[in-house]
């Protein structure tokens, strides 16, 4: 994750292929991150899950795993060589469903994190740059939103959006829930950048507000934003699954981890059908752990001046 962002920013400066790799690994952030074994484990987990997600999206037919397979497959079969993760109450094999769940988690997680990053970056930079009343109102509002327990706030917001939006309703609610975190991080980082004298010089030379923000402030906030995004990716995946689990997300039959867990708990638990809840939950927890390990490592590798802002 981090290396990718780093790479794109570096390419724009126009260094050659070899010099680029050298420069990336020479950066204290990346080298410190790569020397952290836990962070490397996190990267390995994330890469594996991304590969699974893309494989599932490309090679597994959504229709075949959503429709009932009664008559074709054995019903409620325990895990075996033929059905590695067993089959569910509709005789659907769980393995492709769980794999497809990775695609849903990655897709909706990315959208949630990207949307809240965009909103938060906008609000945070505006607050830092204009200061005074603007800063006061924006940031204190963000603080109030942060003080609400995230799941309860998401539940309240979900109620506002129409329910035919399915998982997108959960995405919309969670985007609003996560925005304050990004706004806070970005504001902190932007203030540090704005303290630099060269910004004053640029303004004195006649640069316009949007130009200063986009050209000078934003690029310097990228590292803390990336760290915060990584930490929130894990949270987003859990919360999306939680909303599906409670019945505010994916439509019935959708192979999302939260929904599979919900079925596993409501129907499989009392009869001891363990594989319905074990496999989706295992991959969910593993993915989240991957993002948390990487995010923690990234935070430790961050420049201490920027670390203050990341929560």
């Amino acid at each position: 994750m981090s290396t990718e962002t780093k790479t794109t920013t570096e390419t724009t400066t126009g260094t050659g292929e070899r010099g680029l790799i050298d420069r990336v690994t020479a950066s204290p952030f990346v080298s410190k991150l790569l020397s952290n074994r836990l962070a490397l484990a996190g990267i390995a987990i994330i890469v594996t899950m991304v590969v699974v997600a893309i494989y599932a999206r490309l090679f597994i037919s959504l229709d075949a795993i959503t429709q009932s397979q009664l008559g074709t497959n054995p019903n409620r079969a325990a895990p075996s060589l033929e059905y590695l993760f067993g089959t569910d109450g509709q005789a659907r094999s769980l393995l492709p469903r769980v794999a497809y769940g990775a695609w849903y988690a990655m897709l909706f997680g990315t959208v949630t994190v990207a949307a809240s990053t965009t909103l938060g970056v906008g609000l945070g930079i505006i607050a830092a740059y204009y200061g005074d009343v603007t800063d006061n109102v924006i940031m204190r509002t963000m603080d109030v939103l942060l003080a609400f327990p995230s799941l309860l706030l998401a539940l309240a917001l979900v109620a506002i959006f129409p329910d035919d939006l399915g998982l997108w309703r959960a995405v919309a609610a969670l985007t609003l829930v996560y925005t304050p975190r990004f706004a806070r991080v970005v504001r902190g980082a932007a203030l540090t950048v704005l303290e630099n004298e060269y910004i004053d010089a640029t303004i004195a030379l006649g640069a316009t507000d949007p130009r200063v923000l986009v050209r000078h402030v934003l690029p310097n906030c990228l590292a803390p934003i990336t760290v915060q995004s990584t930490l929130n990716f894990g949270l987003a995946i859990i919360d999306l699954a939680a909303l599906s689990f409670l019945g505010f997300g994916a439509a019935a039959g959708t192979p999302s981890w939260g929904l599979m867990l919900s079925n596993g708990v409501s129907q499989g638990l009392l009869t001891g059908v363990w594989w319905w809840s074990f496999f989706p939950g295992f991959f969910l927890a593993l993915t989240v752990l991957g993002f948390n390990l990487l995010g923690d490592g990234m935070r430790d590798a961050l420049d201490p001046r920027m670390r203050e802002a990341v929560d």
Binding site: R140, T141, V144, A309, D311
Partner: peptide, 19 residues
Amino acid sequence: LDTQTGWTEPDARRAMARI
């Protein structure tokens, strides 16, 4: 937790009064 953002109670009250 080393996450100082300059949050203070009077500042927050002022913002909320505006809202």
